Simulated scan of single mutants.
Amino acid sequence: MTEAGREGSTGLRYGWTTGACATAATTAAYTALLTGEFPDPVQIDLPHDKHPSFALATERLEDGAATVGVVKDAGDDPDVTHGALVSARVTHGERGSGVVFRAGEGVGTVTKPGLPLPVGEPAINPMPRQFVREHVTAVAARYGGTGDVVVEVSVENGAELARRTWNPRLGILGGLSILGTTGVVVPYSCSSWIDSIRRGIDVARAAGHLHVAGCTGSTSERVVTELYGLPEDALLDMGDFAGAVLKYLRRHPVPRLTVAGGIGKLAKLADGHLDLHSGRSQVSTESLAAMVRDAGGAAELVEGVRGANTALDALQQCQAAGLPLGDLVAAGARRTALGVLRGAPVEVDVVVIDRAGTVVGQA
């Protein structure tokens, strides 16, 4: 498979989305269906003048059907589908039907409203569908086909891989989604996670939920569930992407948002950071010390917090001194959130926990 090149600022290698892989597999399979020959490698055309070639990992030609599999290369991105075999089985469709999509083994089916596809449809997103249609049209024009085909997309072990994604919570059952807006995976852009956050908000709104929670991890999800009894599809697996939750809710509001997470991550949100990843933002003990000072903390406590190893260390010093640092962090995180929401009709509360899941602050 052709490399997509390297990302300029990091030198990390680009990869290809499942949508690009499905497009390549479909193109090769439909070519073989019309000509009897599989193009190997098969080249496709993507936005931004990218024309990658994909080696065929599997190929099978039957009477009236052709199947091709390509192995997904996600480049240097830690993608759950890296190395997965993405296959397309192409058969002739009814005249005038165009391209009809089917979910094969390992590709999910939409079961909840709020996604960009109707309930009952295969979880093959709109842009990958567009890529596939364009390539089917081009192959038909080149080799004298009608362009009326049934395309069944499969992902080997997709049902197992999907358990490590948002799909079950979003109501996509039976496997993975075929994703990608440009066909290119930008390493560490985490675009699929952010897209899942947005789809999670869409699904919660479509279900009529008036209260959602953005949680940094499974412990904060458990705490929020115990506090508010929220259903699973009202829980947003925010991870480090607080900004993604807040910016999308600014445009697509839900009446109430709870932000929940550990003291370290929410201290960073209180300090104005919207990406809470340890590699991209750090806890400022200077900021925590300023909070303690402004709350009337003793000079020695202020100095102790300034020299703390971690936010948890600062919290424990303040707890021993009877000063509610958790509440101060929660209030600061809430201020940041409201600033990003810019007056959108969303009530915000914040829940700060320690490693054990004990609530140590609220605002």
Rank of each mutant, 00 (worst) to 15 (best):
Y188C: 08
I194F: 01
P255F: 01
R280S: 12
V245E: 01
V185F: 03
P324Q: 14
L315S: 12
G326F: 15
R199H: 08
Y248R: 00
A295R: 09
A242E: 02
V254C: 00
S278M: 11
R222Q: 11
L325H: 09
I197S: 01
L246C: 02
S196C: 06
V305Q: 00
P187G: 08
R250T: 00
H252K: 00
A204W: 08
I263N: 15
G262A: 07
I194P: 02
A320R: 15
M291G: 04
A267V: 15
L269T: 06
A270M: 09
G304C: 13
N309M: 07
W193R: 06
H211S: 01
G279N: 13
V186T: 06
R222G: 02
L325E: 10
V292M: 08
L325K: 10
C190M: 10
D275K: 03
A311D: 10
M291K: 06
G322K: 09
C190F: 12
V305D: 09
A320P: 11
E232K: 01
E286D: 02
R280P: 00
V212Y: 04
S196G: 11
E286K: 01
A206M: 03
A289I: 10
G322F: 14
V292W: 08
G214Q: 09
R293W: 07
L276W: 04
G296P: 03
R199I: 01
G243E: 01
S189K: 06
L288T: 06
D240T: 02
L210Y: 01
A290E: 07
R256E: 12
L236D: 07
S278H: 10
G322E: 11
E221Q: 11
L276P: 13
W193D: 10
S196I: 06
M291N: 08
T219E: 10
I263F: 15
R256H: 14
L235H: 07
K268D: 06
A321L: 15
S287R: 08
D275Y: 04
R256V: 05
A244P: 04
